[in-house]
Design a protein around this nucleic acid. Structure first.
Lengths: 206, 206
DNA sequence: ACCCCAGTGGTAGCGACTACCACTTTGCGA
DNA sequence: TCGCAAAGTGGTAGTCGCTACCACTGGGGT
């Protein structure tokens, strides 16, 4: 609820031009309560609890085919799950488990995504959260135990896949969420790794 | 010079535990002078003027082959240039054009890289600077003018390549700069995109 | 001699964030 | 019913990053 007011104010007045105190006043609480729930101002926009979902999806995937295919497929599936299930999408930057109005949830997610893309501080933090997700993916792949070389390759593959995911998210936000997110992700993966690398992941044309 | 003291203090005491005032005192100037030269505390570690070099290298490359090969080759070449020329490496986070002791320059770069990797705030900023580099690459490719679809694919490819570059930089820092950076970059690209995608650049020039 | 100006320093202030402590409410067992 | 612990909320004071605004100094050109 605090988050809703925060995102609204940030969108209206700009992130830097809005103080935490103003957010607190809008939400009807004291500034301290805001800091209690959101350790930093940036967390008012960036909250993700999706990392585990993607990582679990990868750990559960059959260990066949190249790394990027496994990771890419997991990303597409996770996005499809989130987009279809709760109106929430994106492997990173997912919001609360909003069980409320799905339409409203998607608008909130879009607003947050736009802030994340346009505000340098938020964008930086968002990209950094991808590092944590990347580590989770590498862990889920069990690559760390297979030696430093395997871990290195897994990190490279996971990082590249997440970069493609980020590109898809940016594009999705630019189109106001009208496009199909899983398909966009598949297209980004195909653009980066070649069409064959993600074939079979989804009905991605091209 | 201020930067040298800053990196040393940050490494000794930790980034967050060191105030800008302490850096200023160590450098023998006032805090304001520090802010004059480095707009933010993070800039004391993150300085990059390399973006243009990579972008120019891409703009000058022949427009044949897939995007990732063109971008990957440019990254490897840029790293080879910087590593061999001035003891400076990395498409991002490059330092001043240190014309002094190359040994000293490399150590400074390594220290900065380690800080960038281990400190969340610095890591976030560093990753964000990659976004600017990504945009420069897309511009250099002239993809923006070729329509939104081409731009989208170029962004996905560039982002993925930069993620691989980042992985290589992390690995390079972990090995204390003993490994050959261009080769590491080529390996990371190969791990992400397949050996054939960078066949032209893989270990060719070293 | 003059002035110009780039570099430096000081002061005051804002905003993010963090201690440390006090108060109220809630739920639960005695 | 009482007492009590736990959780949530709020206040105060302070640090630190950072940004105004203004004053000072020193070297170079006229």
């Amino acid at each position: 609820m605090i988050q809703g007011h925060a995102v609204r104010l940030f969108t209206e007045r700009g992130y830097d031009a809005t103080t935490v105190t103003e957010v607190a006043e809008a939400a009807g609480v004291s500034p301290m309560t805001v800091y209690r729930h959101f350790p930093t101002k940036e967390d008012l926009v960036l909250v993700d609890r999706r990392d585990r979902l993607v990582a679990e999806r990868i750990a559960a995937s059959p260990p066949d085919g190249p790394l990027v295919r496994r990771i890419g497929r997991a990303l597409v599936e996770a996005a499809a799950l989130l987009a279809g299930g709760g109106g929430d999408g994106g492997g990173d930057g997912g919001g609360d488990g909003g069980d409320g109005d799905p339409e409203r949830d998607r608008d909130l997610l879009l607003a947050r995504l736009r802030l994340m893309i346009s505000t340098p501080a938020l964008r930086a933090r968002h990209l950094d959260s991808n590092v944590a997700l990347q580590q989770a993916i590498v862990d889920a792949l069990g690559a760390e135990a297979a030696g430093p070389e395997a871990a290195f390759r897994a990190h490279a593959a996971a990082g590249a896949c997440l970069a493609a995911l980020h590109t898809a998210l940016v594009r999705w936000a630019e189109e106001d969420g009208r496009a199909d997110l899983p398909e966009l992700i598949a297209q980004a993966l195909a653009a980066a790794f070649g069409d064959d690398a993600v074939a079979g992941a989804d009905g991605a044309d091209r």
